[in-house]
Simulated scan of single mutants.
Amino acid sequence: MDMDVTLLSAGLGSVVGLILALTGAGGGILAVPLLVFGLHLSIMQAAPVGLIAVGAASAFGAVLGLREGVVRYRAAAVIGFTGMALAPVGVRLASVIPNAPLTVAFSAVLALVAVRMFKQARRIPTGQTESIQEQSRLPCVLNPAEGRLIWTMPCAWALAGTGAVSGLLSGLLGVGGGFVIVPSLNRFTNLQMRSIFATSLAVISLVSVGGVAAAAWQGSIAWNIAAPFAAGAIVALLLGRLIAARLAGARLQQAFAVTSGAVSLLLFVRGMGWLTL
């Protein structure tokens, strides 16, 4: 029985890693639903396990991004450390909120991600279509001479606010927060999408530390599931990067969005008590 759980955990983790490689940081939001339906865990049990896998896989992706020089590490630090501070608050809330409303809340977040991703897949990212004058009005813009963000108070507040929201949701629902970080960086900065994804992975790895540490302190992590789940995610992420360039695209993003919408509906039905599987 233990071997079956280990193999199933590793297999489910590999799905998460592959999704992360093909769709970007927001793909990790499916980690918790996979654990809920695949291993019949509650949201509170699945959240830290999913966060470990998403955080570990994101850390590997962030290291590769650092080697390529596309991670904005100062922006990642501001968002990440703010998120780390709020993640334990989310973990605490998850321990006192009943599973049913927590499941419904997760389904709502997943539905929002699905709609947003489907819309984004139908258009070119805004950072590639805005004029220089429009970009200059953004809170965070790159210094063209240095290739680094110009730091201002509006920029710092925008990034810190992004970190606070992603950290709270990470601890509460076990999501990495990429679905918050990527749109925020796309909205508040003029970074290229390649840099946005890499920076988001770095943030997720930092934010995950806060959530995982708080969950471990409370003793609510099932390590026999978390370890193989994370290992499967990391291996699949590395392998997925080899085929991402061939498969990634608008159609794939839309397919992921439709899948996320369907899973959101299943979670809502389960949270309302209409589905016991």
Rank of each mutant, 00 (worst) to 15 (best):
S42W: 06
P101Q: 11
Q253F: 07
V212T: 13
V71G: 01
R137G: 06
V104Y: 05
W151K: 01
R187H: 14
A47I: 04
V258K: 06
T276I: 11
L142S: 05
R246I: 09
Y73F: 14
V212L: 08
G219D: 09
A244P: 07
L149T: 03
V70A: 05
A111K: 07
I225G: 00
G50W: 00
A262P: 01
Q135R: 14
M272Q: 13
T199E: 06
W223M: 08
A198E: 02
R123S: 13
Q128M: 15
V49W: 02
W217N: 12
A87G: 08
G147K: 03
R123F: 09
Q45I: 05
G167I: 08
M3P: 01
E130N: 09
M117L: 15
S208K: 01
G27W: 00
V235Q: 01
A111P: 06
V182Y: 00
M193N: 03
L267R: 02
R72H: 14
G273K: 09
V15P: 00
L266R: 10
P144F: 08
I221V: 15
L35G: 02
S95Q: 12
A85C: 10
T259M: 15
R148E: 15
R123M: 11
A76S: 12
G50A: 09
A248L: 06
A25Q: 04
A111F: 15
W217T: 13
L201F: 14
G161I: 06
F229W: 03
A227G: 07
V207Q: 01
A94P: 05
Q192V: 07
L159C: 04
T23M: 04
R194I: 10
F81E: 03
A76N: 05
L102I: 08
G240D: 04
I181W: 04
V32E: 00
A57M: 05
V5C: 01
L18D: 01
F106A: 05
R123E: 15
R270Q: 15
L168I: 10
A105V: 08
R270F: 03
G211H: 03
V141C: 10
Q254T: 11
S264Q: 05
G273F: 09
V165Y: 07
G176W: 05
L252M: 13
A227I: 15
A21V: 12
Q192C: 04
N143K: 06
L238V: 14
A47L: 06
A198P: 01
Y73Q: 11
T259D: 01
S9P: 04
L35C: 08
C155W: 02
V109A: 15
S170Q: 07
L138G: 04
G50D: 03
L159M: 11
I29E: 00
P48L: 07
R123Q: 13
M153W: 12
A257L: 07
L191D: 01
E68H: 10
A57H: 01
L265M: 13
A231L: 14
V209G: 03
R270K: 15
L20E: 02
A46S: 11
S95D: 12
G261A: 09
F81Y: 11
D4G: 11
V70E: 09
T162N: 04
A156K: 00
Q133D: 12
M1F: 08
T126S: 14
T129R: 13
I124L: 13
Q135E: 12
M193H: 07
A231P: 03
P144E: 10
A230V: 03
P144G: 09
A214E: 10
N224Q: 14
A198L: 04
H40F: 10
I124R: 13
V209M: 14
T103F: 02
L66Q: 09
S220D: 09
M193L: 13
